[in-house]
């Protein structure tokens, strides 16, 4: 009999669960993004169902990790994998939550037509879906190199968010009837920006899981070094926009 058969069985089970959760949360976010880019509102129910599934998996994996720690006392790479899983489930769960939030906003909003007009939002969505894919891929393939580069793309996402914010703010100032729509659009952009941050978090866990080292803080350039900003707080209201 191979050593630690039960432990290996549990670890394989955990990896299957986390893979399933990663795929489900990725699918939820990708479908929410398609509601924006394609205006396909029929995907809304699928997004909600996937989010519920992601939440269930979050609970299950959390419990499974604690069981393995309590019963098998994992160390070294096994412990790092479990540590990564325990943290990753929170980020994957956020993918699902933000996907649902985006789907709900689009639902409220004239069949999503207004979203389609914003090219920068479409660009941002492509970038963020790519980051989610790479975060999940880096975990599944134990690719520390790919994981370490996610922060660089997060800077581009943050820049796009700033651009979208200013763009929408301008529309709202031009026509106050667009304020409700504008706020919804800003929220969508904000949710996507947060998803990119969570993808970066996953990259950090994967890097530690694979190498045993923490990602060099110097690699975390851009937004992650800036203090968090409130949703409606403009980056630099006095200098970049004339509010008078």
């Amino acid at each position: 009999m191979a050593p630690r058969t039960t432990f290996n069985y549990e670890m394989e089970g955990l990896q299957k669960e986390i893979t399933e959760m990663a795929n489900a949360s990725r699918a939820a976010f990708e479908k929410a993004v398609r509601m924006i880019t394609d205006g396909d509102l029929s995907l809304r129910e699928e997004v909600r169902a996937l989010d519920r599934h992601v939440y269930e998996l979050n609970e299950r994996i959390d419990e499974h990790c604690l069981d393995i720690i309590a019963l098998h006392s994992p160390v070294a790479s096994d412990l790092r994998l479990i540590s990564a899983c325990l943290k990753m489930v929170e980020d994957l769960n956020r993918f699902g939550r933000y996907a649902t939030d985006i789907a709900e906003l689009i639902d409220d909003f004239e069949e999503g037509k207004a979203f389609k007009r914003f090219e920068s939002l479409r660009s941002m969505s492509c970038l963020v879906v790519g980051m989610v894919d790479d975060a999940i891929y880096s975990f599944l393939q134990r690719d520390a190199e790919k994981a370490s580069h996610l922060h660089e793309r997060d800077d581009a996402v943050d820049s796009l968010y700033d651009t979208i914010f200013r763009e929408i703010l301008t529309y709202m100032m031009e026509d106050p009837r667009k304020i409700t729509v504008g706020i919804d659009l800003i929220l969508v952009a904000r949710y996507m920006e947060r998803v990119a941050d969570h993808a970066c978090n996953i990259g950090e866990y994967v890097y530690h899981m694979v190498t045993g080292e923490r990602l060099d803080p110097k690699l975390r350039t851009g937004a992650s070094e800036r203090p968090p900003r409130g949703i409606f707080e403009h980056p630099n209201p006095r200098t970049e926009l004339d509010l008078k």
């Binding site: 994992p74 160390v75 412990l79 790092r80």
Partner: peptide, 14 residues
């Protein structure tokens, strides 16, 4: 116990 440098050590402690 957290990040052994040698593969043998890793295999043994896990």
């Amino acid at each position: 116990f957290e990040r052994p440098q040698k593969e043998f050590t890793e295999q043994y402690i896990t």
